[in-house]
């Protein structure tokens, strides 16, 4: 699904060059749930923005769904973001001027979807996150956990194959974090590929695999193929860890 080899990303300012990623290698298979961890400033967000085609990279190769994306123009990248990728951010990133319904509708409109289908999908995805009754609410009228669930609904509405989440629970308390995490696991079970950056080892432990980014380089540390078999235990552990 997502394969980067010898990828590098350099931020150049007038005085310094920062290697946010160097000789970065990662291979995320279709349907995987990968947790990304690492110290602050190590390049986790940089990796996600490149993976999500929000930003270009400096060197190396990136294959998304088997296709090289380095030569794509802005419109093609927008189209891929719109159709294949869902984003969930730490700060929710809802559009404050739009109510819940209109927020979820944004990517669907950019896809040029017909109104009837849009309404159908908005309803479904909001029902899924348990917020169908809040369609007319504005983001400021919702709790953090609710906002993040709207953001997830927005990412889900377009049925993306790849969900990129940057510390989706970073701004949430334990209980809300657990709700969001369960939602992501559910989405994953339905077949989406998920890459989630988190600082929380408990949450990371619930992914199939953890990748550590240190100084712009990825270090694969664990595989937990039996995750699906024991969801309850992991959940209890997560709760205990926080309490």
């Amino acid at each position: 699904m997502l394969k980067m080899t010898h990828l590098s990303k350099v931020y150049r300012t007038e005085v310094v060059e920062t290697y946010a990623l160097r000789d970065f290698n990662i291979d995320v298979k279709e349907g995987e749930f990968v947790a990304v961890m690492g110290p602050s400033g190590s390049g986790k967000t940089t990796f996600l923005t490149i993976a999500g085609l929000l930003e270009s990279f400096t060197g190396g190769e990136y294959l998304l769904d088997g296709a090289d994306v380095s030569g794509l123009g802005d419109n093609a990248r927008s189209k891929i973001r719109n159709e294949k990728i869902g984003f969930v951010f730490q700060s929710f990133n809802l559009i404050p001027d739009l109510n819940v319904h209109d927020n979820v509708e944004v990517p669907l409109r950019y896809r040029g979807m017909k109104s009837a289908e849009r309404q159908q999908r908005i309803k479904e995805s909001l029902e899924r996150v348990g917020l169908a009754s809040r369609m007319k609410h504005y983001p400021a009228e919702l709790s953090g956990g609710q906002q993040q669930r709207v953001a997830i609904a927005r990412a889900l509405a377009g049925s993306p194959r790849l969900l990129l989440a940057d510390e989706p629970t970073g701004n949430l308390d334990t209980q809300m974090a657990r709700g969001v995490m369960e939602l992501l696991e559910e989405i994953h079970r339905e077949g989406a590929t998920i890459v989630m950056v988190t600082h929380d080892p408990e949450l990371a432990a619930r992914a199939q695999r953890s990748v550590h980014i240190i100084d712009g380089q990825a270090v694969d540390i664990a595989e937990e193929p039996r995750f699906h078999a024991q969801p309850r235990r992991v959940e209890v552990a997560a709760e205990g860890g926080a309490g």
């Binding site: 999500g52 929000l54 802005d74 419109n75 927008s78 189209k79 973001r81 719109n82 159709e83 984003f87 990133n93 559009i95 404050p96 001027d97 944004v106 990517p107 950019y110 896809r111 927005r154 377009g158």
Partner: peptide, 16 residues
């Protein structure tokens, strides 16, 4: 700026 970025991330083209 931020919501423009969000729209772009969600698939808006520059023309949009």
């Amino acid at each position: 700026r931020k919501q423009i970025g969000i729209r772009r991330a969600l698939g808006a083209t520059q023309r949009d």
